[in-house]
């Protein structure tokens, strides 16, 4: 066992996968010689050389498109978008190329591409550096979407993503990067599409992922009287509805919490499915709690008024539990 924070865990995961499979390589801006602006890819260049840890020009369309072709030719690219906000610069390569080539070819090819994207809000980085864009990728058929909430999960999930034969969007919240967690020395994988029940309870189900997990944990600590079940989805696509439905069946109440705003969100989709598949389980209207729907303003007081908080979670939870605001 070793205590590692999420960036270290990610670094180890990539090292292990590159060691294991010489088709795995890393390509993106600043990932090679410097080791990544977040240091997540440090040591690869020294160990595996430039071809397997390639620094690119600032050409997101160029290098993600290149990843699609490299994958078609049998390699397993791991690429990186420094802030997820910049993923707009390569949307054609991802949405029209990576996500669709397997079907268009009549399933003649597989696209084992992993795209790591750092994201998050609350760090005063304004409108073009604060977005949570997971629902775009959830809405396009063809991607898996993975969002770990801690270093342990990040390692196991990233290794599974790299071994997966379809394009995986792996989102890393920068506010979770530096929390140390016990990580076993032995190798482990976490399967994609399996949620984790962080805490069992009988009266309310809270479904969340990413930064939502520590936010909800703080809220739950402030409600020792309540029996709350907390589910960390870990993978958004595929979505572990079995775990969610089993929990709602038990509790009858559902709150979904995420950093992305509630409208047209992952939460909306979960509610759609719970209503379709578990309508009779519900004792109260299900709620989604997310950041306010806005482009992110810079000034601290404005940004703070947008963000999800433990207090906000507590308020929604208490409402669902008691029926009063």
């Amino acid at each position: 066992m070793k205590k590692l924070h999420m960036l270290d865990a990610i670094n180890v995961a990539i090292h292990e996968e590159m060691e294991r499979d010489d088709k795995v390589f890393v390509i993106a801006e600043d990932v090679g010689e410097y080791g990544g602006v977040w240091n997540a890819t440090r040591g690869l260049y020294e160990k595996y050389g430039a071809l397997r840890s390639m620094d690119t020009p600032i050409s997101e369309a160029g290098f993600t498109g290149l990843c699609v072709g490299a994958a078609m030719a049998g390699l397993r690219p791991v690429t990186e978008i420094m802030y997820m906000d910049f993923i707009t610069a390569c949307m054609d390569q991802l949405v029209n190329q990576a996500a669709k080539a397997d079907l268009m070819s009549g399933w003649q090819m597989e696209l084992p591409i992993t795209l790591r994207a750092q994201y998050g809000s609350g760090s005063r980085e304004a409108a073009q550096h604060s977005q949570s864009l997971e629902s775009w990728f959830c809405s396009v058929p063809g991607f898996k979407v993975i969002i770990p909430s801690n270093a342990y999960d990040a390692k196991g999930l990233l290794k599974s993503a790299i071994r997966d034969n379809t394009p995986c969007i792996f989102m890393e919240n920068r506010n979770l990067y530096y929390d140390p967690v016990e990580i076993p020395d032995e190798e482990y994988l976490i399967p994609l599409g399996k949620a984790s029940v962080k805490q069992e309870g009988n009266d309310l189900t809270i479904v969340t992922y990413g930064i939502g997990v520590p936010v909800c944990e703080k809220a739950i600590k402030k409600m020792p009287d309540a029996s709350i079940e907390l589910i960390d989805l870990r993978t958004i696509v595929p979505l572990d509805m079995e775990t969610v439905l089993n929990s709602v069946k038990k509790t009858g109440r559902l709150l979904i919490v995420h950093e992305a705003s509630a409208g047209f969100s992952v939460g909306s989709e979960i509610i759609r499915r719970v209503v379709e598949q578990g309508f009779d389980y519900l004792d109260a209207e299900p709620l989604v709690y997310g950041n306010l729907r806005t482009a992110m303003p810079f000034s601290a007081n404005l940004e703070d008024s947008v963000l999800i908080t433990p207090e906000g979670v507590e308020e929604k939870a208490r409402y669902l539990l008691t029926g009063v605001c």
Partner: peptide, 30 residues
């Protein structure tokens, strides 16, 4: 991050705007 800033505190270092002076903004996207 102040209201008297060139972008009213909404933009910050990367998003300085002053349309009266034809200054059409910094950009967070390279």
């Amino acid at each position: 991050g102040k209201a008297s800033g060139v972008s009213g505190g909404y933009g910050g270092s990367m998003h300085l705007f002053d349309t009266k002076l034809g200054f059409m903004g910094g950009n967070g996207i390279v």
